[in-house]
Simulated scan of single mutants.
Amino acid sequence: MTQLKSFAATESRADSEPRWQQRKAAMTRESILQAGIDCLVERGYAGLTTSEVVRRANISRGAMHHHFANRSELVAALIDFVQHRRLEFFLSEYLGSLRDAEPKEAIQLATDLHWQSVLTPEYSAYLELAMAARTDADLAAVLVPATKAFDKEWMDKMEDAFPQWDGRHEALHLASDFAAALHLGLLINRPFLGNPERRSAVRQKLIEVVKQIYADSD
């Protein structure tokens, strides 16, 4: 019996070791990607280097190369990471309150939520990548198809999240595109738009327009 217990304990440790290594690897990878986001936000795309990310993540260069062999692999992973972090934020934090809301209430909650997602470091990092892709063909070759695929995934999730828009596929797309364009403009122009009341008035007008899009789709 003692031998059986000893064997079971040894087997349990053997099973737990790979799981721990997997968790440790996942945590290291996320630490690297988070450091990459911080680097993009604070230094821009030109300042995103593997050595700077290694320093910020407080890891060895060997650990960095284990996950990302070069800067290009890191950038590709960051594109996916920052986009899906925004989607997770949108869904996990607010979806419960949006599901049971009345259509017009859900519209206001959704537009407010979208604005909050635009204010995240992840979106700022994405914006740095998007601006750099205008003049960097290699970056554009990765970012453009990834963003198109993500846009489709985003809309699929929105259609699932907002049954109030059932059968209004085109209207939902229009509302989403309109909100994204306006919030991007507000974010970029925040330093020049004056007081917060002015920005709030613009956002309130967006809510009115989106509600009208919904009403017109009936």
Rank of each mutant, 00 (worst) to 15 (best):
66 H>L: 14
104 K>H: 12
142 V>N: 05
27 M>Q: 13
140 A>R: 15
156 D>C: 03
105 E>I: 14
209 V>L: 14
199 R>I: 13
211 K>A: 04
178 F>M: 14
120 T>G: 04
198 R>F: 08
47 G>I: 02
208 E>K: 02
25 A>G: 11
101 A>F: 05
66 H>C: 00
43 R>K: 11
69 A>R: 09
179 A>Y: 00
112 D>H: 15
163 P>C: 04
158 M>Y: 10
92 S>A: 14
210 V>K: 01
31 S>A: 14
130 A>T: 06
140 A>C: 08
142 V>T: 09
137 A>L: 07
152 K>P: 03
75 V>T: 08
201 A>R: 12
99 R>H: 09
32 I>N: 04
119 L>C: 15
205 K>D: 12
127 L>D: 10
58 N>M: 07
159 E>G: 02
155 M>R: 10
111 T>D: 04
151 D>Q: 13
159 E>H: 09
31 S>P: 00
122 E>S: 13
122 E>Q: 11
66 H>Q: 12
37 I>V: 15
11 E>Y: 05
104 K>I: 01
164 Q>S: 13
83 Q>E: 09
83 Q>K: 10
92 S>D: 12
20 W>M: 08
127 L>N: 07
15 D>A: 14
65 H>P: 00
168 R>I: 00
9 A>V: 10
185 G>P: 12
70 N>C: 02
96 G>I: 05
19 R>E: 04
96 G>R: 05
91 L>P: 00
168 R>E: 11
72 S>V: 10
16 S>K: 12
167 G>V: 03
177 D>W: 11
150 F>C: 03
80 D>T: 14
69 A>F: 00
186 L>F: 04
117 S>D: 07
92 S>W: 06
39 C>N: 02
214 Y>F: 15
179 A>D: 01
156 D>N: 13
24 K>M: 11
137 A>G: 10
114 H>L: 04
149 A>M: 12
96 G>C: 06
217 S>R: 08
